[in-house]
Write a protein that binds this DNA or RNA. Structure first.
Lengths: 201, 201
DNA sequence: GTCTATACTGTGATAGAC
DNA sequence: GTCTATCACAGTATAGAC
């Protein structure tokens, strides 16, 4: 009972620390802040952070886990309309692209090995795997199961997002190409055209 | 005269330091080594490095510059056969992919913002721009000038390379998709099929 | 001119008092 | 759980030998 309360308080503190870490990362870069700075942000001393996290890497691990869980939850909202596979893929691509380009540091943490020596924990890795499985399941629903096709798709999407973030942050130079890329891909895998939408009136 | 000799010696030392920095980066990661370690590698003391480079960032800058110059030189060797634009693009893509995936740390330094606070100097930036212009010129030679098309191509290629490096280092899971990607792209921009090759005999 | 020696500030991390 | 004190190491900079 007491333990539950204590644990909940500790969880809340952990949450607060992670939120502050995201904030600092946005301002100073993912590797541009120290534990002393982070502690200052939440009104603690640096060693106290070790009561909540084993190391600085453990904080990154929690952030990594949170980011992949967020993507997993987002991808659960993508409705797959098997009658309109092309529209479904296009919508999924747009949604993924918007998520990925919304936060540079999140993209870096999820997709690039920007923190030297950081390896996600098994738990954090599982979150990323779960997200990927969500994605494969939705492709399977429209008949795309070939690993090479999935790999080509991940490459195209990640390339568009990383170029957008690196060369036109905040713009839409590569965002505009998402639909083209989706169509290219659909043609490549031999998806039939979606049936025409029946407009009412 | 004396100055020339001295300058040449200094250049040779700089070269040696940069080579050692690449070596350390391969072993420990781009951000995984200190100036003291680097100095040890070349038989100097850390402060001595400041006789050759203004700062650690200046060393990264020299590496960045070297890497982009190497790509620029490589792309100068890509022959563009205007009679066979598809084969030319395919060959260029393969060559670029091989270069990019050959060294993880080089790719990170060139294409990802892995070193916090590092901005390439105007000279180093110019090297990357020169490389890019080489690339646009070769596309122009086969009639591809639309910025959106060039952007789509850079996104596809960089996506393939980064996925290869991140998820199958040393393998060929994404390398196998390079030809497919090139063909997709050629279809998209409306390149005609290459004429059949006349085999002799 | 190039080096060694040294010092300054800040880092992640640990030990132990309370 | 939170703190003070401390550690080894980092990047950086200067003084001074030769």
């Amino acid at each position: 009972m007491r333990d539950r309360v204590r644990e909940a308080r500790a969880d809340a503190t952990r949450e607060m620390v992670i939120e502050a870490a995201w904030d600092l990362s946005r301002r100073e870069g993912l590797t541009g802040w120290s534990l002393r700075q982070l502690a200052d942000e939440v009104g603690l001393k640096a060693p106290t952070l070790y009561a909540y996290f084993d190391s600085k890497h453990a904080i990154f691990d929690a952030m990594f886990c949170q980011a992949w869980r967020a993507l997993g939850e987002l991808s659960a909202t993508w409705p797959v309309d098997t009658d309109r596979p092309r529209a479904s893929l296009r919508a999924g691509a747009r949604s993924w692209f918007a998520f990925s380009t919304a936060e540079l540091v999140r993209f870096q943490l999820m997709n690039q090995r920007i923190i030297n020596g950081f390896e996600p924990s098994p738990e954090a890795y599982a979150a990323s795997v779960a997200s990927y499985e969500h994605y494969t399941a939705q492709f399977a629903a429209v008949g795309i199961t070939d690993q090479a096709h999935l790999d080509l798709w991940t490459a195209m999407c990640s390339g568009l997002a990383s170029q957008q973030l690196a060369n036109d942050p905040g713009g839409e130079r590569w965002e505009r190409l998402v639909d083209d890329a989706a169509e290219l891909f659909c043609n490549h895998v031999g998806l039939p055209p979606d049936p025409p939408l029946m407009e009412q009136g």
